[in-house]
């Protein structure tokens, strides 16, 4: 153990790992927000609730239907994504011609409804969700102990983030999406079904949030408020990174998680506020965000 500013390397790497895990969730959530915002021009305030729904879906699948973690990883995003598609078709699609503020208010209301309903049903104490057997235990890396599940979360989120980036930047479907983001009317004139693309994009973004929720379920307790606080941090992440670029969302998500982890080591009192402080500094120095395009 090398003493480093009075802090053991063990603790330092432990917090860095935690930070990286938080960063994985920030990255996945801000990625979904950015994708949705790009095409729908709506800040999806329900995103936190949908992340929470993902965790709940996994919990329900296990406790009511006996369906385990690996299937939940596939099914929960599909189920929650499908509810997102319904929401988009029934409610959100009515707002596209209005001021963007209304989209924020509507999705805020939806988040209140979802959180309230689940609070009524399951209380606020939170329920444990068991780790899959395959990922229990961990390994000693010499300088720190690495639990297998946490390593998996980081790997999985890197894969998901890279996959999303690839889908949007390197495939034909992604090209349609980018075209529609740039100019919806013109894209539609080329015979591409933009309303369908919009609906699917929302469903995809929501599914991404739900996937993050399933990954989070074994780490944090599954409770109705788990999405409410993280979404505000993710908003700050999005303001810092700017929503213009996919890579920007990913990079700022991971790095802010790391910075938060480091703050927990060196100045724990500031760990809850450090991201907001960074946001304030970024606003002063580069108001458009680090990776943002000026509107």
């Amino acid at each position: 153990m090398i003493p480093f500013l009075d802090i053991s390397t063990q603790a330092l790497f432990g917090q860095l790992l935690l930070g990286l895990i938080n960063g994985s969730f920030y990255a996945m959530l801000s990625l979904g927000l950015a994708v949705i915002f790009g095409l729908l021009n709506i800040i999806n305030f329900t995103h936190g609730a949908q992340y929470m729904l993902g965790a709940f879906a996994a919990w329900m699948l296990l406790n009511y239907l006996g369906i385990g973690y690996w299937w939940a990883l596939l099914l929960a995003p599909l189920i929650v994504g499908a509810t997102g598609v319904v929401l988009e078709r029934l409610l959100i699609s009515r707002l596209y011609k209005l001021d963007h503020i209304y989209g924020l208010l509507l999705t805020f209301g939806l988040a209140l409804i979802i959180q309230g309903l689940l609070r009524n049903q399951y209380g606020v104490s939170g329920m444990p969700y068991a780790m899959p057997k395959e990922l229990m235990g961990g390994r000693n890396l010499g300088f720190m102990f690495l639990p297998n599940y946490r390593a998996w979360v980081i790997v999985a989120s890197v894969i998901v983030c890279f996959g999303t980036w690839f889908l949007i930047e390197r495939t034909r479907l992604g090209a349609y999406l980018r075209a529609a983001t740039e100019n919806a009317a013109l894209t539609q004139a080329f015979g591409i079904n933009v309303p369908l693309l919009v609906t699917l994009t929302y469903g995809f973004g929501v599914g991404l949030a739900a996937l993050a929720g399933v990954l989070a379920a074994p780490i944090y307790s599954v409770n109705p408020n788990m999405g409410a606080d993280i979404i505000i941090v993710v908003f700050a992440v999005v303001v810092i990174g700017g929503m213009g670029s996919i890579l920007g969302a990913i990079v700022s998500g991971f790095s802010l998680g790391l910075i938060e982890g480091l703050t927990k080591v060196f100045y724990p009192e500031a760990s809850t506020t450090v991201i907001f402080v960074i946001m304030a500094i970024v606003l002063l120095v580069k108001p458009a965000g680090l990776f943002g395009r000026t509107a």
Partner: peptide, 21 residues
Amino acid sequence: LGAWVTVAQGVIFVVCVLAFR
């Protein structure tokens, strides 16, 4: 009624935004 207040507030938000701006 506990958390039903939150649900009711959410419903009012949705209704106001959609139909009663």
